[in-house]
């Protein structure tokens, strides 16, 4: 009797980018090939300070499983990470710490603000809380909610993937990008 071995037949592969293919070769642009690789192997850095961080734990766990999107590897060192996920209330005293973490990340880097507090200060309209992390670092995607459900965090993550996949390799060297960083007093 055959052993009940089950093969994973539902393997999902990403679509081949636009390009030119012939006998034994395939040609496409660097932008597309590198974008494809980057967007499906994001290393997130969770910067969780409060309840949105708890939702993020659910997002990482088996039910929602962020690893399906190629983000298997959480790293807790900013130097190796591509995506800074800020989840929770950032007080003004925490601001310089967050900024330091952002500065330690290597280019290219992306930032996602998860939840009302990280996006705008949320209900904490008070003297001690930073009114949105975009006052100190540039943010790519904002996820609304207080706290957002794991689906919302995954949606935000997929939007980051879209941004990464479509990003031009020249963007980080452009004047416009340097202007953006300068407006935050970086470099």
């Amino acid at each position: 009797m055959a052993r009940p071995v089950q093969y994973n037949t539902k393997v999902k592969t990403v679509e081949i980018p636009e390009g030119y293919s012939g006998e034994g070769f395939f040609a496409t642009s660097f932008d597309k090939a590198i974008g494809l690789a980057r967007k499906n192997s994001i290393w997130p850095l969770p910067f969780a300070t409060s309840c949105c961080g708890i939702e993020f734990m659910a997002t990482m766990a088996s039910t929602y499983d962020l690893a399906r999107f190629g983000a298997e590897r959480m790293a807790f060192t900013p130097r190796q990470c591509d995506l800074l996920m800020v989840m929770g209330t950032i007080s003004k005293k925490m601001g310089p710490v967050l900024r330091q973490v952002y500065l330690q990340m290597a280019e290219p880097r992306w930032v996602i603000a998860v939840g009302a507090c990280a996006s705008s200060g949320g209900v904490f309209d008070t003297y001690s809380v930073l009114q949105g992390i975009d006052q100190i670092i540039p943010v790519d995607v904002y996820v609304p909610g207080c706290p957002p459900r794991p689906e919302a965090i995954i949606d935000g993550f997929m939007r980051i993937q879209d941004l990464i996949g479509q990003e031009s390799l020249r963007r980080r060297h452009s004047e416009k990008y340097k202007e953006l960083l300068n407006s935050y007093g970086i470099q």
Binding site: G95, S120, Y127, S128
Partner: peptide, 26 residues
Amino acid sequence: ILNVDEMDYFPMRKEFPLEDQSRIDK
């Protein structure tokens, strides 16, 4: 000890509103 060193007022005195005065988008 608790607030940022750059803070130039004493936030629990009544003449200062509780809300963050630097907010622009609320």
